[in-house]
């Protein structure tokens, strides 16, 4: 499984990357949404899933999600945020987020979500 993790907190990125790689999950990281969108555009074979922060400088996670869905409609995108917000949860789900999760998150919980998300991407559309 190959996942893309998007977060502007570099410490968080490297922590998650280390933990996921420890569990044999291939990880690519981006510290802003516009780089992430570019990666989604050019990655072949495509990512199995994306985990993206919502609050980031520049393009935010919701906009990033919107663009990713235009490029790859079946790509599962999980929003992972430290800032619980009802409107973001609703907007995110409406834009087609696979799930809306809150930091801090147990690594096992994230892996279960990623595996489930990867299955969706593999389903016939």
């Amino acid at each position: 499984m190959h996942v893309l993790i998007v977060d502007d907190e570099v410490e968080f990125l490297s922590l998650i990357q280390k933990r996921l790689e420890h569990r044999d999950i291939q990880v690519t990281t981006a510290n802003n949404a516009s780089d992430a969108v570019k990666l989604v555009m050019k990655m072949n074979p495509p990512f199995n899933a994306v985990v993206m922060d919502v609050r980031m400088p520049g393009m935010d996670g919701l906009e990033g999600l919107h663009r990713m869905k235009q490029i790859a409609p079946s790509l599962p995108v999980i929003l992972l945020t430290g800032h619980a917000s009802l409107s973001v949860a609703v907007s995110g789900m409406e834009l087609g987020a696979f799930d809306y999760l809150l930091k801090p998150i147990a690594i096992n919980e994230l892996i279960i979500k990623l595996e489930d998300a990867a299955r969706t991407g593999a389903l016939p559309v």
Partner: peptide, 17 residues
């Protein structure tokens, strides 16, 4: 307040799913 916002956001997201 974090709990209140997070309970609201998570329940809304789950129901939307």
């Amino acid at each position: 307040m974090t709990y209140v916002r997070s309970a609201a956001a998570r329940s809304v997201a789950a129901v939307f799913q």
